[in-house]
Design a protein around this nucleic acid. Structure first.
Length: 258
DNA sequence: ATGGTAGGATTCCTA
């Protein structure tokens, strides 16, 4: 089963790119983030024509997540298990062929001295609570999305510049370490130790052309699913297509026969 | 050197 994840920075602006990626990479499941569209305006029918069913949790202007799947999706849940009034649309979960798949868009955090930074850390711990409720780590789970955190300095084009900065701060990385301690495995790092592989490049200052990027998008799998992993990679091509998202897709393949 | 660009909604917010 091929599982992919992509922050598309508006599904309406990126619809042709997403369809092209589905045709060329042929994932079984694609998790989307930053769809930036209310559910009533999500282009569900265009995915159906390509043989995919879609489950979305969106809102006007900001945020928004979706799961696009070739196979039936059961037990769809929108939001965190301890959902609160006013929560943004940042999480959707569904079960595909016995695998619980989550599409997550972790808050950016804005800056270390912002209330949004504290909210980011709280949101990450609420995500852990949600994963435990879904049976982690014994249950087969795949947690996909834009985490807005680098796991370590291999994921940063200029670690000195980013030291203790947003995306790289010790408290953010400690939250990621708690995810690992819960029994989640970074599928990309299961197959590649090298520095310099990124999933996001800022639109500004020619960052992509100069390969000034960060690896902040992940497919994590629980211990129950880890042994089924056969391959993982970052697919760089879509970042070079015309009018791209600032993120590129990340992909994991599992020999998964429920 | 602390800028720059993109998307979406509306003269600004988020990333």
């Amino acid at each position: 089963m091929r599982i992919a994840s992509w922050n598309v920075n508006s599904i309406r602006a990126r619809l042709d790119h997403v369809h092209r990626f589905l045709r060329e990479a042929n994932p079984d499941v694609l998790c989307l983030q930053e769809t930036k569209v209310p559910d009533s305006d999500f282009p569900t029918d265009t995915f159906a024509r390509l043989g995919y069913e879609t489950h979305r949790a969106g809102e006007k202007s900001y945020n928004g997540v979706a799961i696009v799947s070739r196979h039936p999706v059961a037990d769809v849940r929108v939001g965190l298990v301890d959902a609160a009034e006013g929560d943004e649309r940042r999480l959707i979960a569904g079960t595909v062929r016995g695998m619980r798949v989550l599409s997550a868009y972790i808050p950016n955090g804005k800056s270390l001295d912002s209330p949004a930074y504290e909210q980011k850390l709280v949101w990450l711990d609420r995500l852990l609570t949600t994963l435990k409720a879904d049976g982690a780590p014994e249950a087969p789970l795949a947690v996909c999305g834009d985490f807005n955190v680098t796991r370590d300095d291999r994921d940063v084009y200029d670690p000195a510049r980013y030291r203790d900065q947003l995306f790289c701060s010790p408290r953010e990385r400690a939250a990621i370490a708690r995810l690992e301690a819960l029994g989640f495995h970074d599928t990309f790092r299961e197959t590649c130790d090298a520095a310099g592989h990124y999933s996001w490049w800022d639109y500004r200052a020619g960052s992509y052309q100069r390969n000034r990027g960060l690896r902040i998008d992940y497919v994590w799998v629980s211990t129950a699913a880890r042994g089924h992993l056969t391959h993982a990679h970052i697919e760089p091509a879509p970042r070079a297509w015309e009018k791209p998202s600032d993120h590129t897709p990340v992909v994991a393949d599992l020999a998964w026969a429920p």
